[in-house]
Design a protein around this nucleic acid. Structure first.
Length: 877
DNA sequence: CGATCCCGCCACATT
DNA sequence: AATGTGGCGGGATCG
C-alpha cells in the first residue's frame, strides 16, 4: 500500500531524498506525520526533497530497503508515463538507477523543475487553448494535482490566476471548467479599461517619474484608495470575493491581484512593469510605508502570478535598468490591440464575450458595480441561468445546458431585435438614472453599471411593442427586403405615435421621417489586424465575433435567457457560419460603440443593444471584423503577431497594429458617406463610439441608445426606407414594454429630419436580403441575431466586401462610400461637431475626459483609421 | 547577496 | 467535523 500511495503521491521526490529516506525511516507510522515529520525528524541532512511530505513519509516508512531504486523506478515510471506532462522530471527520476543516489541527487529535480511556471505549462498543456464548445473540459483539482504530481495547493495557485483571466471558471467544489482563451481578449480589454480607470494615471506617473515616485506614489495611492471606495474596480475585484465569502476574508486576493497586475500591463504604455512598482501599487492599503514584510509578501505573490502569466505567454521576464540599477520586471507580450479607452472598443468586445462558459460568470467582472455589490466572476454571470454563484458552485455542468437554451432563444432574431431595442432603451434609462451615469459617458464606464443586474433580471415581456405593422407597411422595405426582414419580424415594436420612429412588428425597423442626414453611432469592434487578407476568414471571423458578442452581452444583461452562458458549442459553430454571415459586418460603418455601450454592456440590457449595433456596423469593415474574428478564430495567430512585434519593440502591440489595419485603435469614428456612393442624396454620418455628447448628436438619444445605424433613404431608396439594423442578438429576454419604443422615439428626435422620408431603424439588420435565421443555429448566442442579419450581407457582400447587395447596399455602400479623401462631402450641413469629429482622428472624438489619456496613441490610430476608410471607399466599386 | 519562489502551516470557507 | 480554499511567509535555490 505504501508503495502505491507513494507512487501516486510523489514519485519524483522520493528519489531525491534517498538518503533522507533512510534517515527518516522511522519505521513508525509514516503516515502520521506526513509533512511535519520531516522537519521534526529532520534528518541530519537537510533534505532537499519534499513536496509531498506524506509521500515521503510513506516512502521512508516503507523502508529504505524496500524502496530500492528498482521499485522506485517502477513506481515512478508508471506514474510518470501516465502523465503527459512532464517528462522531464520524471525522466530524470527514471534515469536514476541503483547506483544512483548520487545520480538522484544530481538529477533530482531542481527547484526549477518544480517551479510554478513549469507546472502551469504542464497544466495548460492538458487543455486546448481554444476548445470547441463541445470540448470544454472539467478540471478536477485532485486529479490534476495527482497527475502533475503536486499538491493541490499549487494547483490552486494556477487556477486562481487562470480564473482571473477567465480561462477557467469554478464549477463546483474541486472542479473547474476549462474555457480556453476564447474570451481572453475580451477579458483583457475589460481589464484594460478597468485598469485605466484605476491605474491609468498612476502608471503614467510611475513611468515618467520614478524618482519621486515614492512620495507621489503615496499620495496617489491615497487618492486612489479614497476613490476606490467608490471605485468601480475595486468593487469589481472585491465583488468577486464578496460574492460568497464576502469581504471578510480576502480570499481570492490572488485572483484580484492577478487582474490588477494584468491591468498594470495593459495600462502601461511601455507594457513593462517592474515588480516593485506593481507590488506598491497592488498594496492597497493606504499605508504608504508599507511594511517591508508586506511588500515582500506581495512580491512573492506577484512571482506566483507572473509565473502563470508567463506560461500563458502573456508576459515575459525582463530587466529594466533604471537609474538606480537593474530591476526585475515583466513585459507584456500578449495581445494589446484592443483599443484603448480611446475607443470604446470595449463595447464591442464586451458584447462579444463569446465564451459560453466564461460568459456567464466570468466575463466581465468589471461590470460590476460601482457600488460594489456585483461580483463578477462566478456569480454574476450566471445569474441569468442560475441564481447565483452559490448555485454555480453546485452546478457542475451548468454551462452547457444553458447554452442550448440560449440558442433557441437566439433563433428568433426578431425577438431579439425588439428586445434588444427595448433593452437598450431600458439600459439607457437606467444608466441615465444612475448617478454614475456620467461615468458611462466616459469609456471607463464599463465597469459598473449599477443597474445592470436589475436590468437583466427583469425579464421584459416581448409584448412590449404594440404591433404597428399596419402602420408601417408603407414604410416597409421593398418586398425583397421585407422578405428578408421577416424573420426578425417577430417583435417588432412600433412607435409610430407622434411621429416617433416606429418599429414594425415583423420587421425590426423604425420609421423616421427621413432627413437628409443621419448620424450613426456605433462602436467598432476590435480591430482586426489580420483579417482582410483572407476575406473568407475575415468574414467568418467577424461573424464569429458577432456571434460571440451578443451572447456575452446577453448573458450579462439578461441573466435569464441570455444567461445561458455557455454555449460553448455555439461559439465555434458560429465561427463556421460566420463565414457565411459576414453580414453583420457590412453594416458596420461605424465601428465602435458609443461609450454607453460599454456600460451598457455591463448592464444587461444595454450591453446588448450597444453590442448589436456595434457589431452590425463594425462588422462592416471586414478588417475590423477580422480583428475580432481573429481573436476568436485565430487567437493564436494574433498572439503571434503581437508577440512578434513585441519582442523587440517596446510597444510592439500598438505599433504593429496601426500598420496593419487601423482598426485596432478605434477611436470613435465617424464615417461619412457620400451621397454619391450609392445613397444618392443621403448623407450618413456614423459615429463610432463617441460619447453622444461629443458628437453633436449627443443630444439624440439614438446614440445613447446604441442604435446601430440609421439610414435615410435617398430618393432612390424611397422604396427602401430603412436600414439600420443593429444586430441584436440578445436573446435577452423580453424587454420592458415600451421601454424600447419610448427610448427610441425619444432618442430619435432628429433635428435634421424634417423630410418626409421615413427612416427605419431595425434592430436586426434589415439589409440583409436574405436570410434570416439560418444563422441562428449557428449562433447560439445573442449574437445570432446580428448574425442573421448580417450573414446575408456578409455573404453577398463578403466577397465583395462592402459592396452592397441589395438592401445591404446602403450600409455597404456607406462604407465604401467614404471618400478616400478625407474631405467630407456633405457633412457640413451636418453638425459641425460631427464633422470635426469625423475628420479628426478618432481619438479626438472620444469622450473628452476619457480620451485625455489616450492622446498619443489614439492619434496615431486615428490617422490610420482614416486611411483605412479611405481605402475602403476606393474599393467599393 | 539579491532575486525567486517552493513548500506547507494554518485560518477561513464550504460541505 | 471534515474537507476545500487559499493567505502567507520562512527559508531554500538560483544567478
Amino acid at each position: 500500500e505504501n508503495i502505491f500511495d507513494r507512487s501516486r503521491m510523489a514519485p519524483k521526490t522520493p528519489i531525491k531524498t534517498e538518503p533522507v529516506d533512510l534517515s527518516k525511516q522511522k519505521g513508525c507510522t509514516p503516515e502520521r506525520s506526513p509533512m511535519t515529520p520531516v522537519k521534526l525528524v529532520d534528518r541530519p541532512q537537510p533534505d532537499p526533497w519534499t513536496p509531498t511530505a506524506n509521500l515521503k513519509m510513506l516512502v521512508s516508512a516503507a523502508s529504505p530497503d524496500m524502496r530500492d531504486r528498482e521499485k522506485k523506478k517502477e513506481l515512478f515510471r508508471p506514474i510518470e508515463n501516465s502523465d503527459q506532462s512532464d517528462t522531464p522530471d520524471s525522466l530524470q527520476y527514471d534515469v536514476v538507477d541503483d547506483s544512483t543516489v548520487d545520480e538522484f541527487e544530481k538529477q533530482r529535480p531542481s527547484r526549477k523543475q518544480k517551479s510554478l511556471g513549469l507546472l502551469c505549462q504542464k497544466f495548460l498543456a492538458r487543455y486546448p487553448s481554444y476548445p470547441l464548445s463541445t470540448e470544454k473540459a472539467t478540471i478536477s483539482l485532485d486529479e490534476v494535482a495527482s497527475i502533475l504530481g503536486v499538491e493541490r495547493r499549487r494547483i490552486y495557485d494556477i487556477v486562481n490566476v487562470l480564473e482571473s483571466l477567465h480561462l477557467v471558471s469554478r464549477v463546483a467544489k474541486n472542479q473547474y471548467c476549462w474555457h480556453g482563451r476564447h474570451n481572453l481578449r475580451q477579458t483583457l480589454k475589460t481589464l484594460q479599461e478597468a485598469g485605466e480607470l484605476q491605474y491609468g494615471e498612476l502608471m503614467t506617473f510611475f513611468q515618467h517619474k520614478e524618482q519621486d515616485m515614492e512620495y507621489k506614489f503615496g499620495e496617489w495611492k491615497k487618492e486612489i484608495i479614497s476613490d476606490s471606495q467608490e471605485r468601480s474596480l475595486l468593487d469589481f475585484s472585491e465583488s468577486d470575493c464578496t460574492s460568497a465569502s464576502s469581504n471578510s476574508r480576502k480570499d481570492k486576493s490572488l485572483r484580484i491581484m492577478s487582474q490588477k497586475f494584468v491591468m498594470l500591463f495593459l495600462v502601461s504604455k511601455t507594457k513593462i512593469v517592474t515588480l516593485d512598482i506593481a507590488a506598491k501599487i497592488l498594496i492597497e492599503e493606504t499605508q504608504d510605508t508599507v511594511d517591508y514584510s508586506k511588500f515582500k509578501t506581495k512580491v512573492r505573490r506577484l512571482y506566483d502570478i507572473a509565473n502563470v502569466l508567463t506560461s500563458l505567454g502573456l508576459i515575459k521576464k525582463v530587466h529594466v535598468t533604471e537609474e538606480r540599477g537593474r530591476k526585475p520586471a515583466f513585459k507584456w507580450i500578449g495581445p494589446v490591440e484592443f483599443p484603448r479607452k480611446s475607443d470604446e472598443l470595449k463595447d464591442c468586445s464586451p458584447v462579444r464575450d463569446p465564451l459560453p462558459g466564461t460568459q456567464r460568470g466570468v466575463h466581465t467582472p468589471y461590470q460590476i458595480s460601482t457600488t460594489g455589490k456585483q461580483r463578477f466572476t462566478r456569480h454574476a454571470s450566471f445569474s441569468g441561468t442560475q441564481p447565483c454563484e452559490g448555485t454555480r458552485r453546485k452546478v457542475s455542468s451548468e454551462p452547457n445546458s444553458p447554452h442550448h437554451e440560449r440558442q433557441a432563444h437566439m433563433v428568433n432574431s426578431n425577438e431579439h431585435c425588439s428586445k434588444m431595442i427595448n433593452l437598450a432603451a431600458v439600459c439607457r434609462q437606467k444608466i441615465q438614472e444612475d448617478t454614475r451615469t456620467p461615468s458611462i459617458s466616459s469609456p471607463l464606464s464599463l465597469l459598473p453599471l449599477p443597474g445592470n443586474s436589475d436590468f437583466c433580471v427583469n425579464p421584459l415581456p416581448q409584448a412590449v411593442f404594440p404591433a404597428v405593422q399596419a402602420d408601417v407597411p408603407n414604410l416597409l422595405l421593398p418586398n425583397g427586403i421585407s422578405s428578408q426582414a421577416p424573420h426578425p419580424s417577430t417583435p417588432a415594436a412600433s412607435q409610430t405615435e407622434n411621429g416617433k420612429p416606429t418599429l414594425l412588428p415583423n420587421q425590426p425597423f423604425l420609421c423616421f421621417p427621413s432627413s437628409s442626414i443621419f448620424m450613426l453611432c456605433g462602436s467598432l469592434q476590435e480591430n482586426s489586424l489580420e483579417t482582410l487578407p483572407t476575406t473568407g476568414d475575415a468574414e467568418n471571423r467577424s461573424a464569429e465575433a458577432h456571434a460571440t458578442v451578443p451572447p456575452a452581452a446577453c448573458q450579462k444583461r439578461s441573466s435569464h435567457k441570455c444567461a445561458s452562458p455557455s454555449a460553448s458549442i455555439d461559439e465555434e459553430p458560429a465561427a463556421k457560419k460566420q463565414m457565411i454571415e459576414h453580414n453583420g459586418v457590412p453594416l458596420s460603418l461605424v465601428p465602435k460603440k458609443p461609450f454607453e455601450s460599454p456600460k451598457t454592456e455591463s448592464t444587461p440590457g444595454c450591453g446588448c443593444m450597444s453590442a448589436v449595433p456595434l457589431e452590425a456596423f463594425c462588422a462592416v469593415t471586414p478588417e475590423a471584423a477580422g480583428e475580432e474574428s481573429s481573436k476568436l478564430l485565430d487567437p493564436q495567430e494574433q498572439e503571434k503577431w503581437t508577440q512578434n512585434k513585441d519582442p523587440d519593440e517596446p510597444c510592439p502591440g500598438e505599433e504593429h497594429i496601426p500598420q496593419e489595419n487601423v482598426n485596432q485603435s478605434f477611436p470613435p469614428q465617424y464615417l461619412y458617406v457620400q451621397p454619391n456612393a450609392g445613397l444618392s442624396g443621403f448623407n450618413f454620418l456614423f459615429s463610432a463610439n463617441q460619447a453622444p455628447g461629443a458628437v453633436g448628436l449627443a443630444a439624440s438619444p439614438l446614440l445613447s441608445l446604441s442604435i446601430p445605424c440609421f439610414m435615410v433613404p435617398p430618393a432612390a431608396l424611397c422604396s427602401f426606407p430603412v436600414i439600420c439594423s443593429p444586430t441584436i442578438a440578445s436573446p435577452l429576454s423580453p424587454l420592458p414594454d415600451g421601454s424600447f419604443s419610448a427610448a427610441t422615439s425619444m432618442n430619435f428626435s432628429m433635428p435634421g429630419l424634417a423630410s418626409t422620408m421615413p427612416v427605419f431603424i431595425g434592430t436586426t439588420s434589415v439589409v440583409t436580403p436574405h436570410v434570416p435565421p439560418t444563422p441562428s443555429v449557428d449562433h447560439q448566442q445573442p449574437a445570432h441575431t446580428a448574425l442573421h442579419l448580417s450573414p446575408v450581407h456578409a455573404r453577398s457582400c463578403g466577397t465583395v466586401k462592402l459592396e452592397s447587395p441589395v438592401c445591404m447596399k446602403h450600409p455597404v455602400t456607406l462604407l465604401k462610400l467614404q471618400q478616400p479623401s478625407s474631405a467630407p462631402l456633405t457633412p457640413k450641413s451636418i453638425r459641425p461637431a460631427c464633422h470635426e469629429a469625423f475628420f479628426k482622428t478618432p481619438g479626438s472624438l472620444g469622450d473628452p475626459v476619457t480620451w485625455k489619456k489616450n492622446e498619443g496613441n489614439q492619434t496615431r490610430n486615428a490617422s490610420s483609421v482614416q486611411r483605412r476608410l479611405e481605402i475602403s471607399n476606393a474599393s467599393p466599386d
